[in-house]
Simulated assay, not measured.
Amino acid sequence: MIEGLSGTGADGAIAHHIAKLHNGAIHADNTGKGKGAIFSVKLLLLESVASY
């Protein structure tokens, strides 16, 4: 389940899965019944990339 919102349907399940795959977090805010939701996703940012 996504923090802050239950019953987000397929959109919420997909967003949650993507966030978990990337060691991230997701939060959803309900804008009112029948008006949808706002999803916020936090992902880690790499400071450096190994050069070849």
Rank of each mutant, 00 (worst) to 15 (best):
T8G: 09
L44S: 09
I14K: 13
A13R: 15
K42L: 08
A13H: 09
A28Y: 00
H27W: 05
G12H: 04
T8W: 01
G34C: 07
N30Y: 02
I2E: 09
S48F: 04
I26K: 01
L43Y: 05
I26V: 14
K33H: 11
T8C: 09
G34F: 11
I18G: 04
F39H: 05
N23D: 15
G36E: 11
M1N: 13
D29L: 14
A25D: 10
L43Q: 03
D11C: 05
G36A: 13
E47F: 10
L21S: 14
T31E: 11
D29I: 12
K35F: 14
A28R: 01
D11N: 15
V49M: 06
I2S: 01
I26P: 00
I26C: 00
T31G: 06
G4P: 00
G4I: 01
L45V: 15
A28I: 05
V49Y: 02
S48K: 07
G24Q: 04
K33I: 06
A10D: 03
H22K: 13
A15R: 07
L46C: 06
G7I: 03
D11Q: 15
G24F: 03
L45T: 15
Y52Q: 12
G4D: 00
A19I: 03
S48P: 06
G12T: 02
G32F: 10
G32E: 10
L44W: 01
E3F: 08
A28V: 02
K42N: 09
D29C: 02
L21P: 00
A15H: 10
G24A: 01
L46D: 12
K35Y: 13
I18Q: 05
Y52A: 12
M1E: 10
V49I: 11
N23G: 09
N23S: 15
G36Y: 11
N23M: 07
T8D: 13
H27Q: 13
G36D: 12
A13M: 11
S51I: 09
I26E: 00
L5F: 08
H16E: 13
A13Q: 14
A50K: 14
H22T: 09
V41T: 13
V41Q: 00
L44K: 11
K20F: 03
H22S: 13
I26H: 08
K33T: 14
H22C: 05
L44M: 07
A15W: 04
G12Y: 00
G36L: 07
I2V: 05
S6M: 01
A10H: 06
K42W: 12
H22Y: 05
L21R: 10
V41L: 07
G32W: 07
A19Y: 04
A10P: 01
L45R: 06
H27M: 04
L44A: 08
G12P: 00
G24N: 09
G24W: 00
A10V: 08
S40R: 12
S51G: 07
A50Q: 08
K42C: 04
I14M: 10
G7E: 07
T31I: 08
